[in-house]
Amino acid sequence: MYRTVLLWYTKELTVKEKRSLRVNIEFDHATLVRWSPDGKAFLIHKAVANTIEVYKISKKPDGTLASAIKALEFSKRHTEDVVGMDIASTGKYIITCSKLNDLVVWDLKGQVLATIELHLGSTYRARISPCARFIGTSGFTPDVNIWEVIFSKSGEFKQVAKAFDLGGHSSGILDFTFSADSSCMATVSKDGTYRLYDTKIEFEKGEDPHLLQTGPWENTTTANIALSPNTEVLAIAHGSSLSFYSTITGLLDVTIEDIFLGPITCLTFDAVGEYILIAGDRHIKVFQNITGYRVAIESATRKLTQKQTSATKERLEVLVEDNRKFLQAMGEKCP
């Protein structure tokens, strides 16, 4: 019996006949999938075996995918379901974490670098920051724990040390995310609120993260969260619905309801923030980030009330006009 992982050639996503590479997972299925930073391999977490496998990718001369071959299987370290798996953008380490509060840091060959005992009651999420410097963990307790992964100047692993916490919620944190440059973080909690923090801090000197924005969300038992690359739009998936918030005003902009029959399981913005991709019901759907255009107008309008150079003022006015024309062409409301 086989379950599969499908790999798609993204340059063909707009054409009718899309090609994919089918990778069979023998007697098991993948619950989590992550690409390596160089795109030459991918990782899966196998549900039944509760282990990580690494598959090496080969490509055809035209750049399309040719094959995927299992290259490595990590030893089993978790007894409960894994809730987080990630690979650092530097390619230096991998993390896995189960709901049983056991965070494991691995090297790329499957050797354990560190094991961290968390104190979250039950762990819900574990992620690596885009800069690869930090690991974040959240769960039943009302804080996100941030850990620093430290390497020597020669590139050798040294330790994982506590960096700081994101506090302020009164209940467990369902999900959290880093901004593209790791300078901000957002959280969504069972207490019915989300929070946006400035995390570009000197935590070594005891400085705490600064709260930038907070607001209510339509509270459900599960949630997934994503920040646009410019941090101006916060997306929260709750059940089968997707809500977009302005981090400038803190207000809800729009909710798209009943996207799937079941819950949304994953979401992410593209690299420039023009689209948001969501997964559910064995499908992936792509939506245009319309909220981003409205928030850009709001942000530029506020900057125009401040003292600006003539060149900056002209650039902001053009931005406002262009975004308004786009929204009108799409039949969307303008601020």
Rank of each mutant, 00 (worst) to 15 (best):
L6H: 00
W8R: 09
T10P: 12
V15L: 12
N24H: 08
N24W: 02
I25G: 04
L32A: 06
L32D: 04
D38F: 11
D38Q: 15
I44E: 01
Y55F: 15
K56L: 13
K56R: 11
A66W: 05
I69W: 03
K76V: 02
Y93S: 02
T96S: 13
C97S: 12
W106S: 10
T115I: 13
T115S: 13
E117R: 13
L118I: 06
T123S: 01
T123H: 00
R127P: 01
C131I: 09
G136C: 07
N145E: 15
N145P: 03
W147F: 15
F157S: 05
H169R: 03
L174P: 01
L174G: 05
L174M: 14
S179A: 14
A180Q: 14
D181H: 08
S183C: 02
S183G: 05
A186V: 03
G192A: 00
L196D: 08
E202F: 11
D208Q: 12
G215A: 10
P216M: 02
E218V: 00
T220D: 10
A223I: 09
N224R: 15
H238N: 13
S243L: 07
F244V: 07
Y245G: 04
T247A: 06
G250Y: 07
L252F: 10
D253R: 11
I259C: 07
I259G: 06
F260N: 04
F260H: 11
T268D: 07
A271R: 14
G273S: 04
I276C: 09
D281F: 02
R294N: 14
A296C: 08
I297L: 03
S299C: 08
A300I: 01
T305H: 13
T305V: 05
A311I: 12
T312A: 14
T312V: 13
E317Y: 02
R324F: 01
A329I: 08
K333V: 14
